[in-house]
C-alpha cells in the first residue's frame, strides 16, 4: 500500500474519530461542536504529520513520539501562532478523546477474552500487584523528589 493510500485512510479515520469525540465533548463537557472544530482539526493535523513523518523517516521510533514532539513545539510559548493553537485545542477535552478510544478498545479486546479466561486466579492476583507495584512505586519516588524540590 502506498503512502498516499495510507494518508487517505488515516484522514478518513481521524475525521470519523474527531466527529465522534466532538459530540462526546458536547454531551459530556458542554462544549459546542462548532467551538471544538478548530482545535480538533489542529489535533488531527498534528497526528497526521506525526504518522507521515514516522513513515518517511525510516528510524525505528514510534509515531506517537513524533506526534508528541510536534504538539509540544507548536504550542511552545513564542512559537508563531502557539497562543491560537492553545486557545483552540483547549476546547477539546482530554477525557472526550479517551472515551471513544476505550469504546473501540472494549470492542477489540473481546477477541482476547478466551485467552483471559484461561488465566487462573493466581495470575490475576499477581497481575493486579504488578500494576499496583508499578503505580505506587512511581508515585512514591515522584512524591519524594517533588517534595525535596519544593514543587508540592
Amino acid at each position: 500500500m502506498t503512502l498516499m493510500n495510507n494518508i487517505q485512510e488515516w484522514i478518513l479515520l481521524l475525521l470519523i474519530f474527531g466527529v465522534i469525540s466532538a459530540i462526546g465533548n458536547w454531551i459530556g463537557y458542554g462544549i459546542l461542536p462548532l467551538a471544538a472544530v478548530p482545535g480538533m482539526i489542529v489535533l488531527i493535523l498534528v497526528s497526521l504529520a506525526g504518522l507521515i513523518l514516522q513513515k518517511l523517516l525510516k528510524v525505528n521510533i514510534p509515531s506517537v513520539a513524533y506526534v508528541a514532539l510536534i504538539g509540544i513545539i507548536i504550542s511552545l510559548p513564542g512559537f508563531p501562532g502557539s497562543e491560537t493553537v492553545v486557545r483552540w485545542t483547549t476546547e477539546v477535552n482530554l477525557l472526550a478523546l479517551a472515551t471513544p478510544i476505550l469504546a473501540y478498545a472494549g470492542i477489540a479486546i473481546g477477541r482476547s477474552w478466551t485467552d483471559f479466561k484461561k488465566l487462573g486466579w493466581r495470575s490475576v492476583v499477581v497481575a493486579m500487584l504488578v500494576m499496583v507495584g508499578t503505580f505506587l512505586g512511581s508515585a512514591l519516588i515522584a512524591e519524594l523528589v517533588l517534595r525535596m524540590q519544593g514543587i508540592i
Binding site: S47, G71, P77, V86, L94, L97, A98, Y104, A108
Partner: peptide, 23 residues
C-alpha cells in the same frame, strides 16, 4: 477493525497532551 482506531485515537490523545505540555 477496531484495533487501528485505538492506535489513531491514541495519536490524537497524544497530540492533545503535546499541546498541553508545550505551554
Amino acid at each position: 477493525n477496531a484495533e487501528p482506531l485505538i492506535v489513531l485515537g491514541v495519536t490524537l490523545l497524544i497530540a492533545k497532551i503535546g499541546v498541553i505540555i508545550g505551554p
